[in-house]
Computed example of a mutant assay.
Amino acid sequence: MDRYLKELQRTSTTLAAAGTPMQRLHDFAEVLHACVGFKLLTVLVIDRVRDESRRVYSSRPDIYPVSGAKPIRPDSPFFKKVIERGEPSISRTLDECAAAFPDHEVFAALGCGSVANIPIRWNGVTLGSFNLVAEEGKYSDRDLPILNTIGALAIPVILQALDRA
């Protein structure tokens, strides 16, 4: 728990400093890596005007470039669970990833098979999500308290990113 507290204190310090959303999202990436780890992290924002989700941060822009956008698919399990209901989603195996994500082959090529999708919500609305990808079996329900807390701390940064879109 002390490790998490140290990282949360670091987060509060960086949030108070001047900076761009991209700088703050990089800070969040460092905290997420220190707390639960990942091989790939993307941050999506939900643009309800354009009906699309847009990538505003990627730890691997060579694979998942920033500013990539996809139409919102309201019938997808990801949209229903993470965006509509605001519930985190964990895929623990490559088979679970294959069932949930059309780009699961990219995950496999990175040696990954576990995904944690963490909604970032404000006032009952999902603004975006942290999407962490790591080796199979990496994420579990025990990671959710710290991931949800970090997601809540990201609200002002995501609001600022949406304002600049």
Rank of each mutant, 00 (worst) to 15 (best):
A98V: 08
V133S: 04
V82M: 06
N117D: 15
I155G: 00
E135L: 03
F130K: 09
A34M: 05
P71L: 05
P145H: 03
F78S: 00
L40T: 08
Y57P: 01
Y64A: 08
A69Y: 04
I155R: 04
R55G: 01
V56M: 05
L25V: 05
E30T: 09
V115G: 03
A152I: 00
K80A: 06
G19I: 08
L147V: 04
D143Q: 10
S89Y: 12
I83G: 02
T11C: 15
G151L: 06
A134G: 13
Q9S: 11
F101N: 03
T42G: 02
R60I: 05
R48W: 07
I90L: 07
E135T: 10
I146E: 08
T14L: 13
A109R: 14
D62N: 11
A154K: 05
P21A: 08
P74L: 10
A100L: 13
T13Q: 14
G111P: 02
R121N: 06
C112T: 10
L159T: 03
M1V: 11
D2R: 12
G68Q: 14
P77N: 14
T20R: 06
K70Y: 10
I83Q: 02
C112F: 06
A152D: 12
T11P: 01
G68N: 12
Y64C: 02
V66C: 03
A98R: 15
R50Q: 14
P74A: 11
R60Q: 09
D51A: 12
L110H: 08
I158Y: 01
D62M: 12
N148Y: 00
I63R: 09
A116P: 00
K80E: 08
D143C: 10
A116M: 05
V49Q: 14
P71N: 10
L94V: 09
A17L: 14
V45Q: 02
C112Y: 04
A16V: 05
E96V: 09
D95T: 10
L5N: 13
V115E: 09
E96L: 07
